[in-house]
Amino acid sequence: MTATATPLTESGMGAVLDADDDLAALGSRVRDAALEHGCALVRGLDLDEPRFQSLVHAIGALVDHKFGEGKADLLKLDASREPGKVVTGRGMLPLHTDGLLVGERTDLIVLYARRFADEPGSGETFVCDQLGAWAQMPERLRAVLDAAGSLEYLVEERGYFPSVPEDWYPIGVVRDYGRVRSLNLALAFAPDATARGWQVRVPGLGAKESDAFLGELDAYLSGSRYTYQHRWTEGDLLVIDNQRTLHGRTAIGEGGVRVLFRGQIRL
């Protein structure tokens, strides 16, 4: 199994690999490719729940799970219609860092499309080369992040994040676990979102100024130079370096079917 030389973004993030039925070999190679290129894409796999879990364990050690649903080697992102479901629901998810809100280090995110049928643009995963974007970030955006030092969050989806503070709390905008120094963010939900997992604000700014800044930051990070948007096909595997990238999801269409398996790795 080899990685192609063609990246997924203009900034050079991503690699596409050939499929491999040997899960131990596949786990090792997707891990190495994701760490080198930011994310790795493999198409044409056939993984049921046990085989997916075996692959996750072949990639690396599991995170210390702190969420209210699923396990570190298998969470079903099943496009739930249950009221109040956000992370496993049908709405959009803005660019974010996995583990941010619960204070859990997550190095790699493993996503596999078990079932998918939706209209173009719906239910798609987008991945941002945040290291490239941060290195070239306009000074007007960088200065606000540097001055603030942290963003403040208010978690609304208490069922998924049961252990976090109930009021606003700060999280630093930069993290460094010794492998790479990177941005540490969860951006704002769309203003018309019917359900939100969290709210975010810039300390020291008024509500309008904070919203305007976060909107400009989102538009910059989501630009085509730095962000790859993946149209799922059943059998796709996407392994994402959570330290080098941010990721999110477009809203799922009314008739869309989307069942992704997710695993989380701590190296």
Rank of each mutant, 00 (worst) to 15 (best):
A133Y: 04
S222A: 10
I252C: 05
P120I: 08
Y226V: 03
G70A: 08
F52T: 12
V87L: 11
D18A: 12
D73N: 04
G68N: 10
M13R: 07
T88K: 13
A212G: 08
L47I: 01
L131W: 02
E124S: 03
S150H: 15
G178F: 01
S163T: 10
Y226C: 04
M92E: 12
R142H: 11
F126N: 01
L221P: 00
R181L: 02
D32F: 08
A40T: 08
A133M: 06
H96A: 04
D46T: 15
R142M: 04
L267F: 12
E10F: 08
G149K: 15
V257Q: 15
P203K: 09
P50L: 14
E104C: 08
F67R: 15
E209S: 13
Y160T: 01
A24N: 06
L75I: 12
T125G: 10
D32T: 09
P191I: 09
Y226F: 15
G68S: 09
V202M: 11
S54E: 14
R196I: 00
Y220P: 00
V144T: 13
A40Q: 14
Q243N: 11
A25T: 07
G99K: 11
K66T: 06
A188H: 15
L141K: 07
G38F: 09
T250S: 15
D129Q: 11
L151K: 10
R225I: 00
S54I: 03
M92P: 02
L35K: 14
L95I: 00
A113E: 04
V180S: 05
G44E: 09
A3M: 02
Y160A: 04
V56G: 04
T97I: 00
Y220V: 03
L214A: 00
D73W: 00
P162N: 09
Y153P: 01
I109G: 11
L108V: 05
E216M: 08
T233V: 06
T88F: 07
T106R: 15
H230Q: 06
R181M: 01
M92F: 03
G149H: 13
D21I: 04
K76Q: 03
L237H: 13
R244C: 08
G99R: 14
R225A: 04
L187Y: 05
L246T: 06
Q243A: 12
A5S: 07
G27A: 03
G235N: 04
R158Q: 07
G263L: 01
V202R: 15
G103F: 04
L26P: 01
G103C: 02
I59D: 10
G99D: 09
P165F: 12
G178D: 03
G99L: 09
R140L: 00
Y226M: 05
G263C: 08
L74G: 09
G223A: 11
L41S: 08
R175Y: 12
E69M: 11
E124M: 02
F67D: 09
S222K: 14
A190C: 07
A19N: 05
S224E: 12
V102K: 13
F67M: 13
E166P: 01
G27I: 02
Q130H: 13
